[in-house]
Amino acid sequence: MNNSYVPVKAEIIEVIQETSSDVDIKTFKIKLVDDEKMDFLPGQFVELSIPGVGEAPFGFASSPLERNFFELSIKKTGLVTEAVHNLWAGATVWIRGPFGNSFPMEEMEGSNILLIAGGLGLAPLRPLILYMLDESNRDKYGSIQMLLAARSSRDFIYTRDFDQWKEVKNTDIILTIDNPEEGWKGRVGYPHIIVSEMEFDVNNTYAVLCGPPIMIKFVSAKLVELGFPENRIFTTLEMRMTCGVGKCGKCNIGHRYVCIDGPVFNMAQLSQMPDEY
């Protein structure tokens, strides 16, 4: 029997400082020992352990087509994240997963895609972006529009990817920040305002959002107002969890467990769930 609580050994092979602001976000490139492959789908997550400190769940932030390593983008917030931030290339971490469901990659084929991310919310969308923009998959999707928001120009993550993403055909990126800045060439304003100025065919577009809860709330309400059907607006949730496999009893919203029934849900499902967990 596969023991789902026991992690496997892995090695950090690169650490990338993500933002130039004081927000402490790093991306950790990790490979499993003995060149074990990690097979995952966009939207899934792993549990990462630092023995002696603890374990916490993190969404994949790299391409699912790359199986030799994977990346996790981690903000220093609590005990485990602080311990991870003190690690360097060559350090050992422990991994179990992948867990959870995924974005509906097949269901979205043939449709246009609107991606809206706020801050670190871009991290769980990156596997989806890299999958769809890959040459082998790009023709399966229509236009891909990305609306990426951050508090300031220094708070964007993955800026190294942006030029490459823009070069892919029929793909567009709009960057927006909360307040005007000298020399800023992108947009200024919250994403729910900017999105109402964008053009898309609500009958043939899937929207995928991730960001702070307040952003999800305003953007999803705006999309519904603009005519998006609730079952074509997807987001991914996070919740405190121990086991990641539906046993420990922490991450439920109503009868649904974020770890096994999610973390990806559409707005039709979310609007049927009790509000305050």
Partner: peptide, 24 residues
């Protein structure tokens, strides 16, 4: 009731992961 948490404890050279009952 079966809700639980994992707790890591350092014991000499070992890091031991315990499962403990937790409560909603």
């Amino acid at each position: 009731c079966h809700c639980f948490a994992f707790k890591d404890v350092k014991e000499k050279d070992l890091s031991v992961r315990y499962r403990v009952w937790d409560s909603c």
